[in-house]
Nucleic acid binder design. Structure first.
Length: 201
DNA sequence: TTATCGATGGTA
DNA sequence: ACCATCGATAAA
């Protein structure tokens, strides 16, 4: 079956892109976190199309990972983290900011990749700070209404640019999870070494 | 440069 | 009482 006729397949002036399939997300979470680097996150809403390049991610492995929201069990807030892969888990933090995750592995697993920073590519009205999980959600108009959204859909989706530039990946401990004991020291944060759009180096 | 703190509100 | 943040301010 072909996709719906309104499916977005290219970005004017930027060349084309492909779409990952469901299986891309139904893989080892650490691997997905690495493979998301350099890909695009695309936000399309009536009258606007914003494109940003993913430059920083963190892997949250599942209920056994003490830093992961899923380690506290299923709740109304985190239910989409236990949902099918390739969907969004969006939560609010400190009452002020939203954070975007990409759900990974099989339904029920409770793992996801946090998108921590992106580089504006197209469609932003002016200079926009997208260095940080809360800031990028603000820049892309992402809030809890997008929780559970299929990232293979049209509103918010992942794209694979046709001509990606090469990069080196840096591994670091995750940010803001000191409470997680030994899990806080695991190298589950990934970013593009040369990028100036990383939240902190 | 690092350290600290207030904003702000859902969640458990 | 926390908290996968951010921006401002102060100290050094």
């Amino acid at each position: 079956m072909p996709g719906p006729p309104e499916t977005i397949r290219s970005a004017p002036g930027l060349g084309g892109f492909a779409r990952p399939d469901r299986a891309f997300f139904d893989r080892d979470t650490e691997q997905v976190a690495r493979d998301l680097l350099g890909l695009w996150i695309v936000r399309s809403s009536p009258g606007t199309l914003r494109i940003a390049r993913i430059v920083e991610t963190e892997a949250y492995l599942g209920p056994h990972d003490r830093a992961s929201h899923s380690s506290r069990g299923r709740t109304p807030r985190n239910r989409s983290m236990f949902g099918p892969p390739g969907h969004a888990y969006v939560y609010q933090i400190y009452g002020l900011h939203f954070c975007l995750n990409v759900v990974t592995e099989a339904e029920g697993h409770g793992s996801a990749v946090l998108i921590r920073a992106v580089e504006p590519v197209a469609g932003f009205p002016g200079p926009t700070n997208t260095r940080g999980p809360g800031l990028l959600c603000r820049a892309l108009s992402i809030d809890r209404t997008l929780d559970g959204t299929d990232l293979l859909g049209e509103e918010l989706f992942v794209a694979i640019p046709d001509n990606p530039s090469p990069f080196h990946i840096v591994r670091r401990p995750r940010v803001g999870v000191d409470y997680a004991g030994a899990w806080a020291r695991r190298l589950l944060r990934f970013y593009i070494q040369a990028s100036t759009w990383v939240s902190r180096k």
